[in-house]
Nucleic acid binder design. Structure first.
Lengths: 267, 267
DNA sequence: CCTCAATGGTCTGATTCCAGACTTTTGGAC
DNA sequence: GTCCAAAAGTCTGGAATCAGACCATTGAGG
């Protein structure tokens, strides 16, 4: 177990052994299609749980100062035993992401603020995940978020849905600088969630996750924020107007911008 | 373990106990966003493996008469132990999906042909999965397949890619009736796979899977095939032309048609 | 100060899942 | 007919995971 000064860079490990990654080569059957024979599970329960909780923390689902649900409830939700959950929590505690307090009104408190990026962070993040995986993640995100926007723009929105969308939009626009990323995430995910499809929402969350570390590694600059604000507004407008094509185009442009920004910092 | 006359209807069960589903209610944190605290795993290793193999069989990834990879290799690929894999294989064997032969040139041979739908199959399939999940699946599929088409249409295609796409297209068009669904799947998944993003390909495969049972429960009718052929051609053309909006629109129309067909049969 | 409820901390026996070594069956090649 | 290689079938000890009972700590309220 390592314990570095910057939690964001600390890799979280624990009592379990690493899991061998499967080979990916031949295609089976006439179809030549899809590797359905990919690993059934991404890792052991402990690893997957750590990953999940880390995601919830980094995405700001549980922001700094808040606490995770009580162990018993969380274990039930995650579909794992309390023992396994506790191992994961301990790993995150030792890595500096959580502060665990006992007694009534105790709990696992999140102590994580997105670190201000330092030179070399991005390069390091990319190296960690691999160039191919980066392209994969960006492509995946483009597809699912465009799709989600299209779906939402196609649907008849209830007043409630419009409100939520508008609220999220102003949430990003009014965000304090160090809360910007979190509100940006909330806006993007709201589009998927409002579609009413849990599967789609999960896919978009997953896609976003795969680029959070990268985005956290580049500074949040004023001109970029302003540019993004215009694009966000365009996305929301197209959705509210019920124009699928425009919604999609707007999302595509926005994400293309982000991707370009990333590539720019990498070059 | 039950063993019914029609394998497609047989529910596959095994030695493990069912897993309790988690409650889904409160949203955590300010964001109010996404249930990242959903179950870490869908079931135990045995169940998930059965599911996977069944998917590979029903999607035609391993067609009738072919055999699965050898146990040792398959176990490695799926990231599980041979013991667990064997349990899953045995369950599928007892349910009538596999014929296992030992000795050299032996293996687990697929003995499954999509059954011709009988009245009530669709209703039953929907009841099994739930109305909400049906909507979820259709929405999800719409989003990811539209997104995939857009991505592919945006990319510069190599001659090789064009060939593959064309081949898959004629594959559907020339398909024998009882091979139609399989070739249709191959065409749809090819779009995702050609995007070069494994994540996207997996998402599209997953989406398709969630509706296979339903589609298998409705008859393949001549006029529908012809209609679909026109739409498939439009999709391929838009992609080759590099027109993302048209590609997406074409996919959306096509899937909307399928969804309408399903709803029609349900009414 | 005492009590209580909510929460984390600990322990135990049972079940699932694993890695790896070994056995048996089968059909082709010589 | 004999041998061999590739495959399924079997066994074992150990690690991971679970469910559930029980303990310890804490702060609020009386």
């Amino acid at each position: 177990m390592r314990m570095e000064s910057t939690p964001a860079d600390a890799s979280v490990s624990g009592p379990r052994a690493p899991v061998a990654s499967a080979s990916r080569d031949a295609t089976v059957g006439i179809t030549g299609v899809v590797s359905l024979l990919r690993p059934v599970r991404a890792g052991n329960a402990f690893e997957e749980t750590v990953e999940r909780l880390l995601q919830a923390i980094k995405l700001g689902v549980v922001p700094h100062g808040e606490k995770l649900p009580p162990e018993r409830e969380l274990a039930t939700r995650l579909g794992i035993s309390r023992v396994t959950l506790r191992e994961a929590i301990r790993a995150l505690q030792e890595a500096g992401y959580l502060d665990v307090r006992r007694g009534r009104y105790g709990g696992a408190f999140v102590v994580y603020r997105p670190p201000s990026p330092r030179k070399g962070d991005l390069r390091r993040a990319v190296t960690r995940m691999g160039e191919d995986d980066l392209e994969d993640a960006l492509t995946f995100r483009m597809a699912v978020e465009c799709g989600a926007a299209r779906v939402l723009a196609t649907a008849d929105l209830t007043p409630r849905q419009r409100e939520t969308l508008a609220a999220r939009l102003s949430g990003v626009n009014d965000a304090a600088p160090d809360d910007y990323r979190r509100m940006d995430i909330a806006f993007h995910l709201a589009i998927a969630e409002l579609s009413g499809s849990p599967l789609l929402a999960a896919a978009c969350a997953d896609a976003r996750l795969r680029v959070t570390d990268l985005l956290n590694a580049i500074p949040v600059l004023r001109p970029n924020i302003e540019h993004a604000a215009v694009q966000h507004a365009a996305i929301a407008a197209a959705i509210v107007d019920g124009d699928p094509e425009a919604a999609e185009r707007a999302v595509a442009e926005h994400l293309e911008g982000t991707a370009a920004l990333l590539r720019g910092f990498l070059a």
